[in-house]
Amino acid sequence: MGARAQPPADAGAALLQAAREGDAAAVRGLLAQGAPVNARDAQGSTPLLLATAGDHVEVARSLLLAGADVNLQNDMRDSAYLLAGAQGRLEILRMALSYGADLKSTNRYGGTALIPACERGHVETVRTLIAAGVAVDHVNRLGWTCLLEAIVLSDGGPAHQDIARQVLAAGADVNLADRDGVTPLAHARRRGQAEMARILAAAGGR
C-alpha cells in the first residue's frame, strides 16, 4: 500500500499531446501519474517545447515546476528557451530564464535567442534577453549579428528602430560588418531606411 502507481506505457506520448493542445489539466494529471516530463516526439521535441510553440503558459509553468529542461533541443536545434526568444513568447521566456536557460546556446543558424528576436521585431523580448546578459555582438553562421538582422531582414520601421537603439545602448559594435564587409549603416542606406541610418550614424556608424 502507498506505492506510487506506475504511469501508463504511453504516458510520454499523452503528455506530448496534452502539451501541444494546451490542456493544462491533462498535463498536471499526467505529471502526477509520473509521465516523463522530458519525453520526446518523433522530431525530438519535448512537452515544454510544444507548449512554448503554442504559447501555452500554464502548461509550460506546470512542466517547469515538474523539472522540464528548458535547454533540450529538437532535431531542428530548437529548445523551449530559444523558441520562446524567436517567437516572442515573453512570459514563457521569462520563466525559462529563471529555470536555467543557457544564454550561449544557439539555433540551427548558429544564432542566440537574441538574433531572431531582433529580426522579428520582438521589442520586449529583446529587452528581456539583453537584460539577462545575452551577447549582443554574437555572429551567426550567416555572418550576421542581431543588429545586422534588425536591418537586413526588416523594413526598418519603429519596432526595429527601437531594437537598434537597445542593442547599441547595450554596447553592440555599430560598425561590425557582415562577411562582405558591409556595415549596418551601409545596409540601412541601401534599403532606404532613413531613420535607422540616422540612429546608426549618431552612434558612430560608418
Rank of each mutant, 00 (worst) to 15 (best):
A11M: 09
A150Q: 04
Y81A: 13
M1W: 02
L90Y: 02
A24L: 05
Y81L: 05
D137S: 08
L64C: 02
A25P: 00
L103Q: 09
L148A: 05
G205P: 02
G110S: 10
A132V: 11
T128E: 15
L147G: 03
Q43L: 14
A18F: 02
D173W: 01
G100L: 12
L30F: 01
T112A: 08
T52M: 09
Q87L: 15
V136Y: 01
Q161T: 01
G181F: 10
G88V: 09
L200Q: 08
R40W: 04
R28H: 04
Y81R: 01
G121H: 04
Q43R: 15
R4S: 14
A66Q: 03
G34V: 09
V126P: 05
P184Y: 09
R20A: 14
L148S: 03
L168W: 07
R141Y: 13
R61I: 10
A117H: 07
E149F: 12
R94K: 15
N107K: 08
K104I: 02
A150Y: 03
A150I: 05
A202K: 13
T145D: 04
K104C: 00
P184V: 07
R179S: 13
G34K: 09
A164I: 07
T52K: 08
G22I: 10
D78M: 11
L103E: 12
A201G: 02
L64S: 01
L185H: 06
E58N: 09
I199F: 03
L129G: 06
Y109V: 07
